[in-house]
Design a protein around this nucleic acid. Structure first.
Length: 517
RNA sequence: CGGGGUGUAGCUCAAUUGGUAGAGCGCUCGGUUCGGGACCGAGAGGUUCCCGGUUCAAGCCCGGGCACCCCGACCA
């Protein structure tokens, strides 16, 4: 965009500087052809490459949901206003960000087509900002006895939240997500479900996205509107900011009461149903971009890569072209037979170099170069998109090191191994980065210094404050409590009791504070 | 909603005091190229965001509207 700040591109920069991070992020989105702006306010168009990554995430998540007994279903986009407002806290929580449909017809007036004022709906329809209310209205029909429970439903859908400020993938007005909604006969079971799904998200984030996350609970002020307890996974991006990557809510009986959903328990008494809901969204694509990309573009963990390997043919003469393309097609087919997704880039009119840049920007994990020299020697050139020690290398060094000429058979056999390795290395690098940007802090002075420094991150601090104190911290430092982490996720040096960093009151455990998206 | 900024070719931007709307990139065609973003030549591409006003004459000045961007407020 013409009015965005111009960022000086340092050709030797490997990791982005915090100040330029926002621009860097947008550059990647553009270069990798993931998404673009639309004429619709705050909405994005997800381009095929970006969508393919989302589809991969969907597949991985769906497998996990099925394995934990969930079924997919679909509910309406429109929620009658009266239905949304039945749960008061829920309604007031979402009140400021609802898109509302009030008319159902257009009309030509003086040659211009506009809204027909006579078509006003009796009751406005809210475009779902989330589906608890409409789903529980439906659950009422499904539930009479404890034998009908549990109900474990997931929905893949789009939702709309009219945020005042939007950001591609991270906070768009309309976004795609998955929302799980479950109904249980006991509090214990609903709570177990809430924690189980948080675990599913955490496992997915680490093993598939290669982004390590902290599991924990939100403070009351950060809770989902209408929830009794909100659990979350928080990841760290390359600028040290936190990103909430998924939430799982224990809803108690709030929505069952609002929708009047009761069941007859084993003792023959009527009881309100206990509920959970949980979701992750296309924000995870944003997480992927911010966690792994470098200045050359996106890096996609192999498990999410729509294309595992791009085969680039190189030739001068027509004779070479024929032979090289023939070999390149064989290479493609042989890699495909290993269950990999492979793209043979036989586009005309582009030099190989131009193709290298493009596949690198799109984050394709492996590039296979096939040229006359390879035909002669019976070799192939493999190039890795990601090297474990890339952060320490210059661009030129990285390029050289990423390339390896191998005997043909060996090269083909090594591709799956390289993919596995890369998946692990990405997670390891992200873990190491998070560790290097996490600090145990015990004084406000140190806290301030940490967040004023060039390398801020997660501050592990003792906390005994209330919502007002959280507010103070937010105003003074632009930080918030990201979560109260699970004991298992607390590093050794951050364990034990202490005194609240702000109030000095006794504190049972440390929380994680950070700047956040 | 408050403060600031910007709307000109697909993209990034020029256009002197108000005086014939331009460049680079991209795109199309032809040729030479091809192991890290090729080169030469030719070509296509415009309601200067919209509406109104001032003027002999408006991309430029004035009024109104709309959109987008940045900062803040807001954000399970």
């Amino acid at each position: 965009m013409s009015n965005q700040p111009v960022v000086k591109q340092d050709p030797d920069a490997i990791t982005p500087r915090a100040a330029d991070y926002s621009q860097w992020y947008l550059d990647i989105v553009k270069k990798a052809q993931l998404a673009e702006h639309t004429p619709v306010r705050g909405c994005m168009c997800i381009r095929p490459h970006g969508y393919a990554i989302w589809e991969k995430m969907q597949r991985e998540l769906d497998e996990r949901f099925k394995a934990t007994g969930h079924q997919n279903a679909y509910f309406p986009l429109f929620i009658p206003l009266s239905l949304l407002t039945r749960e008061e806290k829920h309604a007031s929580g979402f009140a400021k960000e609802c898109a509302v449909v009030t008319h159902h017809r257009l009309k030509s007036i003086n040659g211009k087509v506009g809204v027909d004022p006579e078509s006003e709906l009796e009751e406005p329809l809210v475009i779902r900002p989330t589906s608890e209310t409409i789903i529980w209205a439906q659950f009422k029909n499904w539930i009479q006895s404890y034998r009908d429970l549990p109900i474990l439903i997931n929905q893949w859908a789009n939702i709309v939240r009219w945020e005042m400020r939007t950001r591609v993938f991270l906070r768009t007005a309309e976004f795609l997500w998955q929302e799980g909604h479950t109904a249980h006969s006991t509090e214990k079971e609903a709570l177990e479900e809430t924690w189980r799904m948080l675990g599913v998200y955490a496992e997915f984030a680490e093993n598939v996205l290669a982004v390590p996350v902290l599991r924990g609970r939100k403070t009351p002020g950060e809770r989902f509107a209408g929830a009794v307890e909100t659990l979350c996974i928080e990841g760290m991006m390359q600028d040290g900011k936190a990103l909430q990557m998924g939430t799982s809510h224990y809803l108690g009986q709030n929505f069952a009461k609002a929708a009047d959903v009761q069941f007859l328990n084993k003792e023959g008494r009527l009881e309100y149903v206990y509920a959970s809901s949980w979701g992750v969204s296309t924000r995870l694509v944003g997480a992927l971009i911010m966690a792994h990309s470098d200045d050359n573009g996106l890096i996609v963990p192999p498990k999410l890569a729509p294309i595992h390997a791009a085969v680039v043919p190189i030739f001068k003469t027509d004779a070479e072209k024929t032979r090289v393309l023939e070999e390149a097609a064989k290479v493609r087919d042989e890699l495909k037979s290993k269950g990999l997704s492979v793209k043979l880039d036989d586009r005309e009119g582009l030099t190989p170099g131009a193709k290298y840049y493009e596949w690198e920007a799109k984050g394709v994990p492996i590039r296979v170069e096939v040229g006359p020299k390879d035909l002669e020697k019976g070799s192939l050139c493999l190039v890795r998109r990601f090297l474990a020690d890339a952060d320490k290398l210059t661009d030129v060094e990285r390029r050289k090191k990423a390339k390896s000429f191998l005997p043909r058979a060996e090269a083909l056999a090594s591709v799956p191994k390289i993919l596995d390795e890369m998946q692990k290395q990405l997670l390891e690098r992200a873990r190491a980065f998070r560790a290097s940007r996490s600090k145990v802090i015990d004084s406000i002075e140190d806290y301030e210094a940490f967040f004023k420094s060039e390398e801020p991150g997660f501050a592990w601090v003792h906390w005994a404050g209330d919502a007002g104190h959280e507010d103070q911290m937010a105003r003074r430092f632009e930080t918030s409590i990201r979560c109260i982490p699970l004991p298992e996720d607390v590093p050794e040096q951050a364990r034990g009791k202490g005194k609240c960093i702000l109030t000095g009151q006794p504190s049972e455990q440390r929380v994680v504070m950070a700047r956040a998206y």
